[in-house]
Design a protein around this nucleic acid. Sequence first.
DNA 1: GGAACATGGTAACGATGAAGGACGTGGCGA
DNA 2: TCGCCACGTCCTTCATCGTTACCATGTTCC
Lengths: 335, 335
Amino acid sequence: MVTMKDVAKAAGVSTATVSAVLAGTSYVSPALKARVEVAVAELGYAPNSMARSLKTGQSNLVGLIVPDITNPFFTAFVDRVQAEMARNSYAVLLGISDNDTAREAGLLGLMRSHLAAGTILCPAGEAERYAALEKNLGGMKLVLADNAAPHGASDTVIIDNRGAALLAARHLISNGHKRIAAMLGPRHRHNSAERWNGFRAAMEEAGLALPDAYVLHGAFREDEAHTEAATLLGRDPLPTAIFVANNLMLIGVMKAVAERRLRVPDDISIVSIDDFAWASAFQPALTVVRQPITAMADAAVMRVIARIQGDQSPPQSLVLPPELLVRGSTRSLHR
Amino acid sequence: MVTMKDVAKAAGVSTATVSAVLAGTSYVSPALKARVEVAVAELGYAPNSMARSLKTGQSNLVGLIVPDITNPFFTAFVDRVQAEMARNSYAVLLGISDNDTAREAGLLGLMRSHLAAGTILCPAGEAERYAALEKNLGGMKLVLADNAAPHGASDTVIIDNRGAALLAARHLISNGHKRIAAMLGPRHRHNSAERWNGFRAAMEEAGLALPDAYVLHGAFREDEAHTEAATLLGRDPLPTAIFVANNLMLIGVMKAVAERRLRVPDDISIVSIDDFAWASAFQPALTVVRQPITAMADAAVMRVIARIQGDQSPPQSLVLPPELLVRGSTRSLHR
DNA sequence: GGAACATGGTAACGATGAAGGACGTGGCGA
DNA sequence: TCGCCACGTCCTTCATCGTTACCATGTTCC
C-alpha cells in the first residue's frame, strides 16, 4: 500500500507537509504543493481513512440497518438515505437484519466497531428492546425509523401508521363496504400494531362487525399472506374488500385473489399500505396509502447528521402523514 | 470512547492481555480471562475495528457498488451479497452509482480509502472504462458483476445475456410470432448490447424482418420505456409481441399497454428479462427470462473472498445460464 | 537450573497537528 | 550605514490515536 510516507519521500518533503497539502489546513508554498500533487498522482496515493479516523476520532461512516431490503419500502428508503448521505459526504455501511433482532444487535455492534458516527436503524422488533440497545452504543448516534415508538433516548422518524390504516379503512367504508377483511402484520411491531389499531378504530366508529375470520395476521411476508388469504377467500360470505397492511403481503393476497378467479374491484376491493412501482402498472392500478418515504429518509438523515454534529437537544419524534392514492382496485358499493 | 486501555486498567492487566483474551491468540489463565471478560461487559467495551485494521493491515470491509438499487434485480443481488458477506464475517459498504460513471469512480475511491479488502462492482458504463480504474485500486480486489466484458484484469461474473435474449425471442418465434418489437437498453452497456445481439440473432435465424420502428432503445428506465412503448403501440400494424430487456422498462411497457387497452396475451404477447416478485402476481402472470441472481451473488462473493485470501490465479470469467419461465403473458399464434 | 508457561512492555500501523526550528526580512538604534 | 534582534513564513519533528505481535521478563515446577 502506498502511504503518505512514500509520497513525502517522492516529493522530498515531510509527511506533515503532505498532510497539509491534502487537507489544506495550513499554508504550503505553491512549489512544494505542486511537487506533492505530482507525487500523489504518480504513486496513485489515496488517504487511509482508517488511520485518519483513528487519529481524528471522527469518521464519515454511517450505519443503516433495515429488516428486509427486498421490501420496496426499504429499498426506496435505503436508496434515498444513501443518496442524502453521499451528498453530505458520508459513506453508508449497510446491514440487513432479516427481521432477526439478534442479528440486528450484532449489526449495531458492527457499526459501532467500525466507528460509525451514527446509525439509522429500522427496528425489526418490539419498541421496548431498543431502550437497552441504546445504552451500549459507545457514543454512536442512533436514529430509529419506520418501526419505533415515539419516545426513548433516540430520535425517531415514523409515519402515522394508525392514520394510514384509518385512511384506508374509511375509504372502503365510505364507499359502502361493510364486510371488510384485514391482512395484518406481526402484532409485536409498533407500526404493525398501530395499523391494526387504526383499522379497528375505523370499523368501530362505523359500527361494523369485525369477525375473527376476517382478521388475519402474518409477518409482513408474501407466503403467509398467500395462504391466509386463500383460506379467507374460501369463506362464505366473502368479504367485499380487503385491507392489506403492507406491500409484500399484498403480493400474496393478489395471488390468492387470482387463484380464486375473483375480479378486482368487481368481486372484491383491495387497498394496501405502501406505494411501489408496480402498483400503478397493475391491472387494475392498485389503491394504496402512500408512505412519504423520501421525507422519512431525509428526516432520518438530517437527524443523525445533526446529532453527529453535536446537537444535544432532547430526543425528537417526527411523525409524517401518509396519503391515500385512490386508483382502480377499490370500487363503490353505492350504486 | 472506552478503549482497551480502560478495560486493562479495570481488570488490572495489560492491554496485551486484553488483546490476547479477545482475539484468543495466546494462552491466558482462566482467572485473568474472567476478569477481563467482566471488565469488558461492565464497561461495554467494543473493539475499534479501525485501529485493528490499521495495525493488521487487513479489514473485514467489502465494497458493493450497484447502479440502481430500486431495480429489483440489484435489490436481490445486494440482499444476497450482504447475506453471504455476513456469513463470512465481512461488512458491506454500499455505494449507489446512480448510473453515473463519475460517481462510480468516486465510490471506488471511497471503498479504497476505507481499506475495503475488496469490492464487487456492477458497472454502469462501458467495459473499456474499467481497465483504467483497475490500475488505481491500491491492492483492493475487484470483481465485476452483471455488466462486464469477460476479459481484463478482474474477475467477472455475468449471465449469458445474448443467450437470455435468444431464449426470449425464440420462445416468441416458436409460438408463431413474426412481428416482434424490442424494448432495449442503452447500447454502450455490455449486457444491454448482448441482449440486442441475441434478439437480432434470433430474428435473423428465423428470417424475420426487424423494422426500425420496432426496435426501441431506452436507458433501462421506466419513464422512457413508457413513452417509447406508447409510440410503438400507436403504429399500424401492431407487433404481436414485445421483447423487453429489463424489468424497469417492463413497467413502462405494461403501462402503455394498459393505456391502449390492449389485452395481454390476446392482443399482444410480452416477454421480459428479469424475474421479480410481482411478475407472478400480475394478471396474467408474466413470462420472463430469469437471471440466476443468487448464483451470481454467491459467485461474486466467492471470487472476491478468494482474491482477498490471496488467490493469484489469472482473472476468471464466470458466465451463468439464464432460464425461461413461461407464464401467461405470451400466447401461441398457432391455432 | 532450566524448561515451560504466563504475562507485560513496547514498537509499530498511517495520519494529524501542536510545537518548534530554520531562514529571511525589516526595523531601529548606534 | 551597518549590525542586531524581533518577527513572520514555511516547513519538519514528534507524540499520539487504539490495537496487535513480538520479545522480554517473571514465575513455577520438575
